[in-house]
């Protein structure tokens, strides 16, 4: 019997998965955009962004726009690979259920 794949726990967190999914579809996004799209709070999303950054899945650039500090996030190659692998593993785990109509 083939072994079932394990899911990357850094990616698996709901908010972190949402952030990685958004960043995979854009060139870059600001902190406020990510917070609003995920309907999160400043403190909550900041903690998850830090975790993704520490895992090397996203990178951050801090700049000043009109004298206001702005953090812009991008997905890294490692992050893209981790997300792709996570989706592959998710599909494997779901097996037959995945293609069933909802």
């Amino acid at each position: 019997m083939p072994e079932l794949p394990e899911l990357d726990q850094v990616v698996h967190g709901q908010l972190r998965l949402a952030v990685l999914s958004i960043l995979s579809a854009v060139a870059k996004a600001e902190f406020t955009y990510l917070r609003d799209r995920t309907r999160s709070t400043d403190g909550n999303i900041a903690a998850h962004l830090l975790k993704l950054e520490q895992a090397g899945y996203i990178s951050v650039e801090k700049i000043f726009v009109d004298r206001k500090p702005t953090s812009t996030y991008r997905i890294t190659n490692a992050g893209r690979t981790a997300l792709a692998k996570y989706i592959r593993n998710l599909k494997t785990l779901l097996g037959g259920d995945f293609n069933q109509p909802k």
Partner: peptide, 23 residues
């Protein structure tokens, strides 16, 4: 468990779709 995993797939699809919606 399967329900949770299916929710994750839904979440990915929703977020990617929203992010791509740029005008």
């Amino acid at each position: 468990m399967d329900q949770e995993l299916l929710q994750r797939i839904d979440l990915i699809e929703q977020m990617v779709l929203q992010a791509r919606h740029t005008t």
